[in-house]
Design a protein around this nucleic acid. Sequence first.
DNA 1: CGATCTGCTTGCGGTTTGCAACCAGTGATC
DNA 2: GATCACTGGTTGCAAACCGCAAGCAGATCG
Lengths: 161, 161
Amino acid sequence: MGDSARSGCPINAAVEAFGDSWSLLVLRDVMFGNRRHFRELLAGSEEGIASNILADRLKRLVKAGLLTREDVGPGRRAAYSLTEASIRLVPVFAQLGEWGLRHRPTTERLRVRAELLAAGGPELWDEFMAELRVVHLGEPAPERDGPGVMERLAAAYAAAL
Amino acid sequence: MGDSARSGCPINAAVEAFGDSWSLLVLRDVMFGNRRHFRELLAGSEEGIASNILADRLKRLVKAGLLTREDVGPGRRAAYSLTEASIRLVPVFAQLGEWGLRHRPTTERLRVRAELLAAGGPELWDEFMAELRVVHLGEPAPERDGPGVMERLAAAYAAAL
DNA sequence: CGATCTGCTTGCGGTTTGCAACCAGTGATC
DNA sequence: GATCACTGGTTGCAAACCGCAAGCAGATCG
């Protein structure tokens, strides 16, 4: 369990934080799917994560400061939330998603979110991060006129079915 | 070695292509360190990759279309080159690096490249990608007045020693 | 000929993975 | 008050993978 960094390189630091087969996908589901509970993440997983792996990754991500766990007693729904650090992964997700849809085969249904995020650019990413801070960090919601990014993502996803 | 995708999600596609402990670091060394040969990558690795892992990752990356291998006979220096797909990872590296240096402990020496890349923004990334296409894909070099991005990265790195 | 370089390969013990079953606590229903 | 479904997980186990260390064949150098 040594968490000593292999090097002081920022890229390596990022890889060590979430550079495995599952961590980033768990974060994706919390961030874009708004899945906040264990069973929700387990059952809703597009890729079919196993429960022991999910449990392990949640622990790791909490330890790494990328998730927080609202610790209620045993047997009651515990909620996982993003942190400022993981909210700041939005641009990373956007770039990864854009790369994936350009250079790998993807399915229409799952592609729409990445497309919308790529098309929106940094302004949209900032708007989305602000929304995530409201939902996950409890920041006060600012006044808004149109639908939020989350709603637009959900609408695009629903329209692609 | 089933390369069947777990899902059609672009993020998952990216994770499956280079979402492990080493693939991205190998690409980083080829891209930013201009290390093109096996022993170069092995000896120059900041994180100390093992030779069998390096061999495996090089094979995988070639298979995934993220590297090409100029196959000379056995016993002679084979050169690895980036492909268009991996050159397009520059924005991903930039965002990952920026996240890493903001949210993880890093060392000054290894931080400068990420800082320069983050500060330069998309215009600099495009310029860098154009340079990589010259070096790795053999595109004709355009006329330039100042030093290239690669030179500036190297200079910043050298200055931080 | 020997030393050194090239890109790897092999052995091996330890770790991780992923499937499946299981578990204790809680709250609602019968 | 017993059953039931739901909560977030744990446990066993076989198979795969990881990383360290050593070795290897072909080419080049002196």
